[in-house]
């Protein structure tokens, strides 16, 4: 278990003084990482995410794992200000999100948007240049070229002019990834990038994410498929509203931790993983 696990143990035993020491130590290492502290999100009376702590280091791919309704997507959204935090703090490379926005790319679930929207693949990729284009301005030729270059990196250059609803699920996911690449970010938060995609896309996406990781980016994916967890990811954060465990996959995703996160649904999750 990582220091994160120690911290909650300390908190549980009420050793506040020692917790502060741990916190100070973390502050020093946070310059090259994304850190989440006591984040709580609630849509109704029951919190979707409760007091979650996590550290996502640079140069590592971390999977956020847990059953349906565990608050994984909500945590991602709360990290990028797409959902309101009730409490807690998120820091990207030592800075609050509002100051680090330009270094962060968020890829929501593919199913969360309307693909009938009147846009072509290149238009979606160009959305990644929103901040670069600037307030009150419209995209110019160089922005379009940057968007085309991003599409090329995910093997979608030939589909640039295609309406997004005409693309397959895997192609749509790659267009979303091109949009993230166009953002030129140092931290990538992806919500289920492998959900409902073909094998070609899965390979292309994992190769690209590894490339980003090897260049020192923070890569965080909400991930559903336990069978590929070990192959694809360096680290894992197991959660079910609260954090269950965190650390290198072998240490975080132990049978006990999985049981704790999934409860009675673990067998079902395994069966789905085998089937999928």
């Amino acid at each position: 278990m990582s220091t994160g696990g120690d911290a909650s143990a300390l908190r549980a035993s009420g050793l506040g003084g020692m917790l502060e020491v741990v916190g100070a130590h973390r502050g020093a290492e946070a310059r090259d990482a994304v850190t989440v502290r006591s984040v709580t999100v609630s849509y109704g009376e029951r919190p979707a995410v409760f007091a979650v702590d996590a550290t996502f280091p640079a140069g590592a791919m971390t999977a956020v794992v847990g059953p349906n309704g565990a608050g994984k997507s909500t945590l991602m959204k709360a990290m990028v200000d797409a959902a309101p935090k009730l409490a807690g703090e998120v820091r990207f490379f030592g800075e609050p999100f509002a100051r680090a926005r330009g270094r962060v790319a968020y890829v929501p679930q593919r199913a969360s948007v309307d693909w009938e929207f009147p846009a072509r693949a290149v238009d979606v990729a160009m959305m990644g240049l929103y901040r670069e284009i600037g307030l009150f301005r419209l995209a110019r030729r160089r922005h379009r070229e940057a968007a085309l270059a991003a599409l090329d990196r995910v093997g979608m250059a030939d589909f640039a002019e295609r309406q997004i609803g005409q693309l397959s699920g895997g192609q749509q996911q790659r267009v979303f990834l091109a949009r993230a690449l166009a953002q030129g970010a140092d931290a990538f938060l992806l919500d289920e990038p492998f959900a409902g995609v073909d094998a070609t896309t899965e390979r292309a996406v994992i190769a690209l994410l590894r490339e980003l990781r090897d260049r020192g980016a923070v890569v965080i994916c909400v991930h559903h498929d336990l069978s590929t967890l070990n192959d694809y990811f360096d680290r894992a954060l197991l959660m079910n509203v609260r954090r269950v465990s965190e650390g290198p996959v072998a240490e975080a995703a132990t049978p006990e931790a999985l049981q704790a996160a999934y409860g009675g649904r673990l067998a079902q999750a395994r069966a789905e993983a085998m089937a999928g």
Binding site: K77, V80, D81, A82, A98, R101, V104, A105, Y106, V107, P108, S112, V113, D114, F117, A119, V124, M127, Y130, R131, I133, F136, L138, R179, Q183
Partner: peptide, 22 residues
């Protein structure tokens, strides 16, 4: 004209729009 990008972005993908500050 002035808020074209914001209107388009928030209609298509509100989560992403929030993340880029739109």
């Amino acid at each position: 004209r002035l808020f074209w990008k914001e209107l388009a972005l928030s209609a298509f993908d509100a989560g992403f729009a929030a993340s880029v500050g739109a």
